[in-house]
Simulated assay, not measured.
Amino acid sequence: MEHLLARVKTLAAEAAADTVALRQHLHANPELSFKEFKTVAFVGQELEKLGLHPQPLATTGLVVLIEGRNPGRRVVALRADMDALPIQEQNEVPYKSTNAGVMHACGHDVHTSSLLGTARILSQLRDEFEGTVKLIFQPGEELLPGGASLMIQEGVLENPVPASILGQHVFPLLPAGQVGLRSGRYMASTDELYLTVRGKGGHGAMPEQNIDPVLVAAHIIVAAQQIVSRRASPKLPSVLSFGKVIANGATNVIPNEVKLEGTFRTLNEEWRNEAHGHLRKLVEGLAESMGASCELEIRRGYPYLENEPQLTARTRSAAEEYLGAENVVELDQWMAAEDFAYYSQVTNACFYRLGTRAADGRFAASVHTPTFDIDSRALEVGPGLMTWLTLRELAAE
């Protein structure tokens, strides 16, 4: 395996400049969720250059197989997401977004170009492995219901059925050359909360004649925190946050209604469902007790993300072989959400983080910000590492 490891690193180095060019093209031409029409056409053309035959799925998604010797021995799936965010880029770089108000601020251009690089390396190693690699280029990670759910519905995990799936995500807290993993529950489920509190508006100087929905909403915001602090186990991470409150009154006008928007996140599906019931009962009961009414809409989002322990242990071991143990770090749980979680609910999955910060501290801007960018060295590490993880997983018993 040492010879094969050295060859993968050589091929990754040889492909690095092309991988960077692919990423810069994608970065300059971002498209929003489920509108990745030019992106998917570009990706398809690049795969065809490798002699591969991509198949469309979920409108703007692609799936393609790379078969080695004895293709039926084992199947491993690899996933990259392709959509961008509605953000106006502030970086002044030659590959700056050319689409106003749209930017690859979450690194999906990195994920896509990295997986194209992995496809290139694996295509050159067909005689070196047994089994089949299924590459999934997925749309719409940033927008409900999530492209992963649609691709699963359309059979991306069938014909052939993968034994496991790997995914990576950029991580500016780590320098390029390092990766992070966590076994078990890693990322949170996410639900969107939309509340309307209705009262009776009127003059602010005569509150006795009104039913003040602003006051009711204030009580709801405070009281709802007991769902997390007193209903949830202290051992189970949960987050309940309200980020938007609209009370369209004035200094002396009590409005008729108040609208609130928030999020609920946790790491357990049973508790998630239970919490929905507790929250609905609390907000409706509290509003009624104060003479108002309340409507709560819960838009169910992505499930929590589970990294299967045995697969994650194998992935960690392979990453240490490729990068050195000192460059593989343990991650904390993260209460953000990712639709890769859908894959983790139906098959063995491992979602790891790819370092993208420069050693001198540059490229430290967080994802989902207008100044996010990466150290291009990550585009040599990413494809080579994913190739090696795949080869080790294909060889697993």
Rank of each mutant, 00 (worst) to 15 (best):
A6S: 13
R7F: 07
A13M: 13
T19S: 11
R23F: 02
H25R: 09
L26M: 12
A28G: 05
N29A: 11
S33G: 08
F37T: 12
L47T: 09
L62A: 06
I66N: 04
N70T: 06
P71H: 12
P71T: 13
A77G: 11
A77F: 12
R79V: 06
D81I: 00
Q90P: 11
E92N: 14
E92F: 15
G101P: 02
H104M: 11
A105F: 00
T112G: 06
L115Y: 00
R120K: 13
Q124N: 04
E130G: 08
I136V: 13
F137M: 08
G147I: 03
S149T: 09
E158D: 15
N159L: 11
N159S: 14
P160H: 04
G167N: 13
V170T: 07
F171Q: 08
L174H: 02
P175R: 01
A188T: 05
A188I: 01
D191P: 05
T196Q: 10
H203L: 08
H203S: 02
A205D: 01
A217E: 04
V222P: 14
I227Q: 12
A232L: 13
V245F: 04
G249M: 09
P255D: 01
N256L: 11
N268E: 15
H276Y: 05
E295P: 07
Y302D: 09
L305C: 14
Q310S: 07
L311G: 05
A313R: 02
A325P: 01
W334Y: 14
A337L: 00
A341W: 02
N348A: 13
A349R: 00
C350P: 08
T356E: 01
T356Y: 00
D360W: 05
F363E: 00
F372R: 00
E380N: 04
R392C: 10
